[in-house]
Structures are given as C-alpha cells and as structure tokens.
Design a protein around this nucleic acid. Structure first.
Lengths: 191, 191
DNA sequence: ATGTGCATGTAACTTGTTACATGATTCA
DNA sequence: TGAATCATGTAACAAGTTACATGCACAT
C-alpha cells in the first residue's frame, strides 16, 4: 500500500466512483495535498482490486465509453480506518521557490522582486479560491448531521489548512520583497 | 539540469565542498526544503562536472580517505544566476497528514486527537529549532557587510519561512484537535 | 477544423530511496 | 564491543510523469 492507495480508498469511502471520476477528484479537492494522474490511478485500482480492497461493476453506456464503478470493500474500509489514525513518518518538504530564496543573494534584486511579487499574487489567488470553497461548503452543511462523522468534516479541515498555508506563503513572499526593497533603497541613498 | 543540480551549485557558490560535505549540508540547512542522499549527490556531481559547471581537485589525506573538493565554474555560476530569478512552475504539495485529515471523519476521535497532538508537538519542536538557528545567525551578522549580497541573506530568508511554516502547521494541528474535542464534548452531553 | 469531455489503458522515462560495498579512526 | 564520523561509489527498486493509443459526442 502506497499513499495513493489510501487517497483512493478515502474517496471511495464517501461513495463509489469510476477511475475517471477519481482522476478528476485527485485534481480538484485532493490535489491540494496529494496528486496523481490517470496513468497511475488505473493500475493502482487494479492492484487494490487484486488485494480485495475494492470491487468493480462495469456499466455499459450508449454514446459514451463503458465505465467501471469501483466500490470499497469491508477489508478496504478496515485498512483505511487503521491507517487514518496511525502514525505518520515526517515527510520532508520539496519547494523550489524556497531553494531560490536560499540562493537569492546571487540574484539581481529587481528580478528577484518581480519573481516574489508574482508568487505572492499566485498564492493570494489560491487563497481566494479556498476561501470561497469554504464558504460554499459551509452553506451546504446540514445542522441535523453531526459534522465530525460526515465527509464534509474532512473538506472543512483541509480547506482550513489550505487557507492558512496560502496566506502564510503569500505573506512570506511579501516579506521577502520588503527585505529586497530595503536593500535596494539603501543602495540608492548611498550610491 | 534537475532541481538538485541547482541546490548543489547554490551551495558551491558559497565555497568549495566535497561530496560528503554537500550530503551533510543537504540534510541540515537545505533539508528544510530540498533533500538528497549521497547516492544521488555523487552521480549528480559527476554529471555537473561533465557539463562543465563544476571542477574538482583530489585531496590526499592520511588516516582518512582521500576526498574530492568541488568548485563551481564560471559557467556554473552563470546558469545558477539565470535559474534563481527565473519563473517557477507551481509544484503541488504532498503531505500525508493532510490526507489523513481529509479522511478523519472515519477515525476514532480519541485516536485522531492523539495523532494531531503528537504532530503539533513535533512541529513546535521544529519551530523552536529554527528560532534558535535564526538567533545564532543574527548574532553572526557583520554589519559592515551588506546582508542581501552575502550567503547569510539566503539563510535568513529560509529560516523565516521555516518558522512561519512550522508555527502555522502546529496551530492548525491544535485547531483540528479543538474541532475533534468539540464533537467529543457534544457527544458526552447528548449521550 | 479544433478543442473539450467522457472513458480506459500501456510504455518509456525520470527522480529519488534503499541496499550493497569498502575501510580506517575515534568515542562511549 | 558497538556506533559514529570520514569518504566515495554502484545496483536495484519504487513512485510518479510524460507520452502513446483509441474513439465518439458536442460545442465553438
């Protein structure tokens, strides 16, 4: 079982989906923290089925290709539940912009400012996106259903994470720009 | 050129290092945002040398294995400078804990609370580490040298990032625990 | 004509990890 | 006696990306 296995089981725990559906979901809500292409999803679904964690039913369609609807099994739900509360080994970050920041003493200040301003904007746009997603989700919550026991709880938690992350990232980009501008300013006064 | 190539050039732009030194540096300060093992570093140094971006000099040592000291070339510095201010393509995140949060509606609340409390503590410890690293770095800054033009500038920027990231992550873990406790509390009152 | 959505798969490739391989010195 | 540090490399493997492959319906 790789992490993707659990991502797929986590989606199938909500409701049955086709591989195509899962590929779409791995882009939009899950893509925030885990990604996979269809070329990785289809073989992985076959492996999950071979392991007895999912089953599929083929649906014949007119005017469209037939599709396979995958459903999580008891065994699949069991391993998913065991994994979800289990320990995580610290997975280190990989971020090329931070690496560039580390090398920023070598850069032309004007070009560096442009880069970090552009990145700030990108993260502010993503932030706006997550905030409206959260507002949409909040509007759909049924007060009769206990939030922590419904799939909406997960969406709620990860959108909060996304908002915190993007805001902090954008603020840091802004702060980097300020550090660069201070230096550029001092240089103008002195030179 | 892969991202690791620039990470190595970025370190060699500060001063010459051996492969062993670089492997150590890829753990400690660079590991915050990019990692590589020696098994990836040694072949990559050979490729960088074949491309003319670095050169090496073999140093014979007594009582220790001989070592190769790598130095960045003009060509290496040139590609590094071009890369550092160049555009970054958005590299999506991969974080297993966020995936677990997404599936947390399936978890036993008590176990989930334990997991997120443990993760909060881990990130608080990392935060403390970065804060003392920043304090050490600040003490070593020479006011006569312009910060933005010295390698210390990069360390300064990335430690600020690390501090922001770990603090936000720890706060989010705490917030998740609160969400879970609220539900657990309601359940006790009602049941 | 061109692109997008639906729908599923395979093959080749890249990146990065784990394990294999060696060997002296120093510290607990 | 065992682990850590110094020092460099290779081989096998796992995970994930890009490209290849097909084909109809519908919109611009």
């Amino acid at each position: 079982m790789i992490t993707l296995s659990y991502a797929l089981l986590g989606l199938l725990a909500v409701q049955p989906f086709s591989g195509y559906d899962l590929a779409r979901l791995m882009k939009k809500p899950v893509g925030l923290f885990w990604q996979a292409r269809h070329s990785q999803i289809y073989p992985e679904l076959a492996r999950l089925e071979a392991g007895g964690f999912v089953t599929h039913e083929t649906i014949a369609q007119e005017d469209r290709p037939d599709k396979k609807i995958y459903k999580i099994s008891e065994s699949g739900l069991s391993v998913l539940r065991r994994w979800v509360s289990g320990p995580v080994e610290p997975a280190p970050m990989r971020d090329e912009l931070i690496l560039k920041a580390f090398c920023l003493w070598l850069a032309d200040p004007a070009q560096a400012i442009a880069l970090f301003q552009a990145e700030e904007q990108r993260h502010r746009e993503q932030l706006d996106q997550y905030e409206s997603n959260l507002a949409e989700g909040a509007a759909e919550i049924d007060p009769a259903v206990e939030l922590a026991g419904s799939p909406q709880f997960g969406s709620h938690l990860i959108l909060n994470w996304g908002i915190r992350y993007e805001r902090e990232y954008a603020d840091w980009c802004r702060w980097v720009v300020e550090q660069l501008e201070q230096t550029a300013g001092r240089r103008e006064i002195q030179g």
